[in-house]
Computed example of a mutant assay.
Amino acid sequence: MSINLTVGNYKGGVGKTKNAILIPYILSSMGKKCLVIDLDPQGNATTVLARTRQNFMDEPFIFDKTLMGAIKDENLSEIILPVKDNLDLLPSHIDFANYPTYLDLKFGLVDKQNEDYDSIYTKKMNYLNELIKPLSDKYDYIFIDVPPTKSIMTDSAVMASDYVLIILQTQELSLDGAVQYLEDLRNLAEYGGRFDILGVLPVLMDKNTSSDEFILSQANDVFGENNMFQTKVPQMARLKRFDNTGIQEKDRFDKKVIDLYKIVTKEFLDKISLMGELNNEY
């Protein structure tokens, strides 16, 4: 049975997608079977992992069917693509932008004043979870990358998750986005979401500056110091280069990123273990 995790923030460009693919990349190298589900119609995770695959395999990606096509068939497994040993991708496509309309047609469209709104919206949010469940036995971890906005896509991902990892870039707008995201997570819990917030992973704009320290201090106050990852991801040019090359381990700059994410992943696993122990006490 997989551990499912959504990586999110309501501010774009904060490193959300990078972490949604680099942590499972490291886990896969540790022998853990991982799946990355790209629920962003822009498909950034799909693009980077497609390029990563080229670093490990000669065969190109062949898209016989889009994400919406697989959803309509109620069979997500038919579009899963291998990236490397122990790492698979469920790729996104621009047509996934039609997912809200698909749900409206399937379950009905009502406004918030309608007495059936909550029950219908709950069905919409939980539909994706039903599609993901058949994949659970095949993986140790399923990571879900989502758009940086409030939407049925982001809500559906959270409802299908055991944990949520919040990415925080050390700038005011990113903190605002993280706070808004936290408020929405609380609302989703009232809809029956059974997830825990794993923590907040800081991504530094410019390490060792007063502005970074100020935002981190504010984040400690908002989220609680115990919920903040001790590991902080510094500004690294090689992380941006992975957008063009895919994740690779060819030189010392690549390896510096990989070594950092081994530390991030260890703390990730420690937090998963601690959460499991706490949940078993209740």
Rank of each mutant, 00 (worst) to 15 (best):
T154N: 15
F195L: 11
K207Q: 13
T154G: 11
F143L: 03
Q248R: 14
D196L: 10
M205A: 12
L269T: 10
D259I: 08
Y163F: 01
L175E: 00
K266H: 03
K250F: 07
V158Q: 03
F223K: 01
V164W: 04
D145I: 07
K250L: 07
K150M: 07
G224K: 11
Q218S: 09
E172L: 15
F253G: 13
T265V: 07
G246M: 04
G177F: 04
E249A: 12
Q218F: 00
K271G: 00
V158P: 02
N244F: 10
E183P: 05
N244A: 10
G177L: 04
D155M: 13
I215L: 07
R241K: 12
N220C: 02
G193Q: 03
D212V: 07
T265P: 06
F253P: 09
Q218I: 01
R194C: 12
K271N: 01
D145L: 00
P148A: 09
V158K: 00
A219C: 09
M153S: 15
T149D: 12
N227F: 11
K250E: 13
V257W: 03
N227G: 04
L198Y: 05
N187R: 15
Y141C: 05
Q169R: 15
I167Q: 13
P147H: 09
Q180P: 04
I215C: 08
G199C: 11
K256C: 06
L173M: 09
S217D: 09
D251R: 04
D155W: 02
F195R: 10
N187F: 15
V158M: 08
I215G: 09
G193N: 03
A160H: 12
I152Y: 04
Q248W: 03
M159V: 01
M236I: 14
Q180A: 05
N220I: 00
I215W: 10
D254H: 05
I197C: 12
F143Q: 08
Q248A: 15
T245I: 01
V146A: 15
K256H: 15
T209P: 12
R238V: 14
A160D: 01
R238K: 13
D176L: 10
S156N: 09
T209Y: 11
I215T: 08
G246H: 02
L185M: 03
V264M: 12
G224Q: 11
Q180M: 10
D145Q: 07
E249N: 14
L188Q: 08
L260P: 04
K240C: 13
Y181W: 11
D270M: 09
V264E: 13
T154P: 09
D212Q: 08
E249W: 09
N220P: 00
Q169I: 07
T170G: 05
T231H: 11
E213H: 05
T149Q: 05
Q169H: 03
L185C: 02
L188N: 07
D145V: 04
M236F: 12
Q230D: 14
L188C: 10
F229P: 00
Q230P: 06
I144S: 01
L260T: 08
M205L: 13
